[in-house]
């Protein structure tokens, strides 16, 4: 009995009672604030999208965010193998192309192949052959093809009877190229090639040059140098190629074309010596 009275008295003096009868509750105030905030955010993002169409030059639509890297490395190599039947005519059945001006794709990093295909698709890198091919592939196909070429071996396996191009170490071991690959040239601000193109270090999108064709390497250095190829993010290769002289470009192309990029360059590498592949 006394308890009932107490409870009733408590309810009577409850300060929240007046609020409960009011239709404008604090929860609704917070909800309204949230709705207004969301509307403002949506509005500003829409404005931002409208303003995005300005006139600045974008070298490549690829940005190495974690999502992009995940998407580019998510390919299935077996599906890529089936798709890559179309590439065999120019890039070779084993990823080694019969023509020097066409790049070898065997063992190239997934991200590097994916980025070039993506740039061909967007017209950021121009090629009358590759642009229509890349445009005919879907987003998933690009990752699959890249995954396939990344898995191809670059040197002969004893249990395998395939034939690989033999590196020609003796003919092409020039001190200019060895020095540039191993140490770069600090006085001109040229970093060593092997810091990004391997085997010492890699950057996302920088291909390994270990088994690349000499003609292709030279053509790309020239294209970067005169700006006709301009799809490198934040222009590292355009800057470096512009700093290199013609003879240095030629020496580097011969160095990589001979398969010397498989091993890290070093002080002992300046002196000519026979190369032993793994």
């Amino acid at each position: 009995m006394w308890r009932d009275n107490q409870v009733r008295d408590f309810h009577k003096d409850d300060p929240l009672d007046s609020l409960r009868s009011c239709s404008w509750q604090p929860g609704m105030a917070i909800a309204t604030t949230t709705v207004v905030l969301l509307a403002v955010i949506a509005g500003t993002s829409l404005l931002n999208r409208v303003n995005a169409g300005s006139s600045h030059r974008v070298p490549s639509n690829v940005a190495w965010t974690p999502e992009t890297i995940a998407q580019a490395s998510s390919g299935k190599a077996f599906r890529g193998l089936l798709l890559a039947k179309r590439c065999e005519h120019c890039h070779g059945a084993e990823g080694f192309s019969p023509v020097g001006s066409t790049p070898n794709l065997a063992g190239l990093d997934k991200l590097a192949v994916w980025k070039q295909l993506e740039d061909f698709r967007d017209g950021k890198r121009s090629s009358p052959v590759m642009e229509p091919i890349a445009q005919s592939l879907s987003q998933r196909d690009l990752a699959d093809v890249a995954a396939y070429y990344a898995e191809l071996p670059v040197y002969a396996d004893p249990q395998d009877n395939r034939v690989f191009p033999e590196p020609n170490a003796q003919a092409s071991h020039s001190p200019i190229a060895s020095r540039l690959v191993a140490f770069g040239e600090g006085s001109r601000g040229i970093p060593p090639c092997q810091a990004c193109h391997g085997p010492v270090g890699y950057k996302p999108g920088a291909p390994s040059l270990a088994t690349q064709n000499a003609d292709y390497v030279l053509a790309q250095l020239d294209a970067f140098g005169d700006g006709s190829r301009a799809n490198d993010i934040n222009e590292p290769m355009r800057t470096i190629a512009a700093l290199l002289s013609d003879s240095e470009r030629q020496a580097l192309a011969t160095y990589y074309g001979a398969g010397l990029g498989l091993q890290p360059g070093g002080a002992s590498d300046i002196a000519p010596k026979p190369l032993k592949l793994p």
């Binding site: 600045h56 030059r57 974008v58 070298p59 940005a63 965010t65 993010i233 934040n234 222009e235």
Partner: peptide
């Protein structure tokens, strides 16, 4: 700024 997206938009695009 987003270090991965400097070249896409903002003040660090190529011609700026």
């Amino acid at each position: 700024v987003d270090p991965a997206e400097l070249h896409l938009s903002g003040e660090f695009v190529e011609n700026n």
